[in-house]
Design a protein around this nucleic acid. Structure first.
Length: 217
DNA sequence: CTCCCGATAT
DNA sequence: ATATCAGGAG
């Protein structure tokens, strides 16, 4: 014990950090391509441990072949696996997509659910995926999508002491203003991709390096 | 905790 | 060669 740095973490500090980051990424748009909640759900399931660019490449073809919940529910797992092969975890993802589509048909009247509770019942859907579907598919901002970037930046910026994504989400919810919830996740992700890169963070060009406990400059 | 897993950057 | 990418299930 006693090795955890005492981070002077407060709401004011967070708002300062976020304001600076928002200035860097004014139009923090989602990068996944989709035309409806179903496509968003599928694309987000596919995005696990995969770049959005690769997901878009796959879905561009995929959504022409499978265009309805029924198409996915009745898909052959091996064939779907080949269709999404390059996103990685292809067998698991194919199983999850088919399972989700079947549950949507049998339990949710063929419509992608618009509540956290129902979305979490879908196989392959956790809080991160559910938060994205709610926010981008239905304009319902309930929580914050905590992915690997959000986890890393929250820890490095001293916004949380936790490593569990669910706990980090709660920590960020307490710090952020309601009007910031919508863009918080995407802003942190963009900064994580462009500047605070996992392997070699560019602290020298980071707009919040003065406020960052982990800054290397 | 481990496993699932290909594509990409370094 | 290795770490990492809009994670979730067992």
């Amino acid at each position: 014990m006693a090795t955890i740095p005492p981070v002077p973490d407060n709401t004011e500090n967070f708002n300062h950090v976020f304001k600076l980051l928002q200035g860097e990424y004014p139009d923090a748009e989602p990068m996944l391509h989709f035309k409806n909640p179903l496509e968003l759900l599928i694309a987000t399931i596919l995005s696990a441990q995969c770049t959005d660019k690769q997901v878009n490449k796959v879905t561009q073809v995929l959504f022409k072949k499978y265009s309805s919940v029924e198409d996915f529910a009745n898909a052959d797992i091996n064939e779907l696996g080949k269709d999404i092969y390059t996103t990685g975890f292809y067998h698991q993802k194919a199983k999850h997509i088919i399972g989700s589509a079947q549950l949507i048909l049998t339990e949710f009247g063929g419509k992608v659910p618009d509540t956290m509770e129902e979305l979490l019942k879908l196989p392959g859907v956790g809080r991160k995926t559910a938060n994205i579907v709610l926010a981008r598919g239905y304009n319902i901002i309930e929580g914050i999508a905590v992915d690997t970037h959000v986890t890393r930046l929250s820890q490095k910026l001293g916004l949380t002491q936790n490593s569990d994504p669910g706990k980090i989400e709660l920590d960020l919810m307490e710090l952020a203003k309601k009007e910031d919830l919508e863009n918080l996740s995407m802003t942190l992700i963009l900064h994580g991709r462009n500047v605070c890169i996992a392997r070699r963070p560019k602290c020298g060009v980071c707009v919040v390096n003065k406020l960052c406990p982990s800054s290397e400059v």
